[in-house]
Amino acid sequence: MTGQRIADSALRGMRRGERTNRRALIFDILMYGAIALALVSLLALIIQTVVKGAPDLSLQFFLNFPSRINPANSGAQSAIVGTLYLMLLTAVFVIPVGIATALYLEEYADKTRWWNRMIEVNIQNLAAVPSVVYGILGLAFIVRGPLGLGPVLLAGGLTLGLLVLPVVIIVARESIRAVPPSIREGALALGATKWQMVSRQVLPGARAGMVTGIILSLSRAIGETAPLLVIGAASSPRFNPSGLGDAFTALPIQIFSWTQDPNPVFVNQAATASIVLLGILLAMNGVAIVMRNRYEQRW
């Protein structure tokens, strides 16, 4: 009787083992299936863009302006130049403001004060605001209203700058926090003032993380379409902006307006412009990685 019971329970144990194995197998299949699905789709996205866009990718595409009359000789010079200018403007605005805010919050702010806590919560919330809402802000506040700049390059750069500012602040704070307190204490003990300590020890120590984070934020900025659409970037202009007060376009806007075109030649050129945009983003990511390796500090 007891022997029978032992045998039964052993058998049950084995069955349970089998069931666990089967469950593990099912889970493995699900897991690898899901990953494969996601990877294959994302791969399809990139391959499809390259296949459609590559035939038009030539030096002409970089040098010519968009043309309705002569679609075969159409290019994206104004959009490429516009994107590079936008990147520069955004950087000029966001780097000093972002780093200064991060330094204030990490090195100077007294966390027990309500206004400093409010600034922190505010930045977290700003990071979650959809980009199209920044477009509305740009339209109502920068293009029209108080600043009234019109839909010009400077307005685009400021709008994108405000959009990525919270992200820049967050990454800058993280890299400042990574500098160990002993470095600060050492500097202060040697008689440095607070600003000497911050500017000569903390900032250089946090350089690697900051540079990488800022480059990645800028690459996010130049990929944005919605805010530029809303503030009224020009579509397919045949000129480059020559100053801050000129009308402009950017690669995402050019891609969008070609996508909307009934002529299939232009729809394919949207893919060509996408390749150029992806190329710029990849290059920026590459630079970010090089910078990280070059300036990385081990404490």
């Binding site: 994302l42 399809a44 996205l45 499809q48 863009t49 459609k52 990645l216 690459s219 996010r220 990929g223 944005e224 379409t225 995402p252 891609i255 969008f256 996508t259 729809v267 949207a270 893919a271 996408s274 945009l277 992806l278 983003l281 990511n285």
Partner: peptide, 17 residues
């Protein structure tokens, strides 16, 4: 890298593929 890809490229993919 994929999380930071411009969404316009995703939109193009949806429409044309």
């Amino acid at each position: 890298l994929l999380a930071g890809m411009p969404t316009i490229i995703f939109g193009y993919f949806a429409l044309t593929f």
